[in-house]
Write a protein that binds this DNA or RNA. Structure first.
Lengths: 138, 138
DNA sequence: AAAATAGATTAGAATCATTCTAATGTATTG
DNA sequence: CAATACATTAGAATGATTCTAATCTATTTT
């Protein structure tokens, strides 16, 4: 092991200690080309399969939430009983196939909303998320 | 009791038996002027407070899901560990104050989306949901 | 119209997702 | 190189949701 440089740096610079659990999780989440959409359960299964040393689910929760606080991950608004996270932290939207529990990113630039009613008084807009639910043709 | 006519009719016409549990739930959910946004827990508390005869949480789940299947309720796509339901079943969108767990409907007519990327191949659009997250000013 | 059968409904118990907290680890200070 | 303070981990507790055996209701049979 030695190619964790980037992850170690990033963790340190945001005040998180680069423990072996966190580095293992970083590797799974961020060392990939494509955006990764996952649930804690999916992440857990990855560790179970890989015969990687056991990590407690509680640690997966702690770490994923810490990464979210630090802005490495985004939580996605979906119904259902599993919380989804996304390694794409830019403003963006999603296609979602409920049947497949499959998410596809939509770039922010590819969506435009040209009318919205006025925001309730005393409040301001924090973010706008568009979810396009899709299903099989015919 | 005698003004359950409408609920009894509707339940019967969609193949659900008008049991006393279901009628009590209908009363809470539908006998009101405004759209009602709720979680199972909120519904449960309503029954606890009202000293209404006890209904098992499992029955609240069964009933709410049955009502959703029949189109009396809509499930709302939100993150968080409680599932929200809405008595407004028309196509519409939401303002959501995460801090307050407070939802406000936005009429479909008041939102327009004028560009979206092409749908993934083999799939078609089922619905489009816009969630506008809001927070306190300043 | 009572008994038998089939199917729907209810709700306690089981399961699964998430959070809490006591135990452990790591950095810092004297 | 202890001692202290704080961060991290993970088993246990909690809370949300689902499962399924028991109960209820409608329908059929006699």
């Amino acid at each position: 092991m030695g190619q964790y440089k980037f992850h170690i740096e990033r963790l340190r610079s945001s005040g998180l200690r680069p423990t072996k659990q966190r580095l293992a999780i970083c590797k799974v989440l961020f060392d990939r080309k494509e955006t990764f959409h996952f649930t804690i359960d999916k992440l857990k299964k990855t560790f179970e399969k890989g015969t990687k040393k056991k990590i407690s689910v509680a640690t997966l929760y702690n770490t994923v939430h810490a990464f979210k606080e630090k802005g490495y991950l985004k939580e996605i608004s979906l119904k259902g009983n599993q919380t989804f996270f996304d390694t794409n932290t830019k403003n963006h939207h999603h296609f979602y196939d409920e049947h497949m529990s499959q998410l596809v990113d939509i770039d922010d630039k590819n969506v435009s909303i040209n009318y919205l009613p006025k925001t309730p008084s005393g409040k301001k807009i924090k973010s706008i998320e568009v979810l396009v639910k899709i299903e099989d043709n015919n």
